[in-house]
Amino acid sequence: MKKSKILLGLALTGVLAITLIAADHIDAPAVAGGKSDITDFYAFQGSNTDNMVFVANVQGLITPTASSSASFDENVMVEFNIDNNGDNVEDLVIQAIPRNGVMFFFGPVAPGTAGTTSMVKTEKPLGSISITPYGSEPIITTNNGAKMFAGLRDDPFFFDFGQYSAIIAGTATSFNNPGSDTFAGSNVMSIVVELPKSLLGGTGTLNTWVETKKK
């Protein structure tokens, strides 16, 4: 079953033109297919429940064939935003930006200015980690109480986007059972950071989101 899924993934993504927009994959013209295109965002309790984990995935639908040459863009910062007083304005940011094969993390720290432009908060380094090469075991580090990872991972998103598209197009009236995971067999560029909840500026409910920002 897995082999057939791999083949399906290759067929879907490696050969011909494809029309895929889901989760946040390829959601808008300015970012579609580029290195700042966010595909997914996750925030969840760590295996140590004193910790919170943030995941940002970018550049979806990377085939195994294309994976060895996939890379982050040094001009693209990934910024996790945390609002801890309910006004949907970020009070803290965690930034990740690559340089020469290493992903550098900064924060959590108050942004210089909230909103759509940012500077790298170099005065608040969190740590850095070598970007894991394709095919290697994940390289992780712990620094300042935070664990960090950057590199290729299986796309964790699952959705029968093909059938959804058929429904939207009017050529089908319902989902199939079983459905078919359109994202099976494809990879994403992933940034994962796990850190103590005590660094997130409050308890209760946080509003969080991720942004890509380009120089």
Binding site: V31, S36, I38, E79, T117, V120, V210
Partner: peptide, 10 residues
């Protein structure tokens, strides 16, 4: 440098 927003997701 200044980094300007391109994509956003919650």
């Amino acid at each position: 440098g200044t980094y300007t927003q391109q994509d956003q997701m919650g």
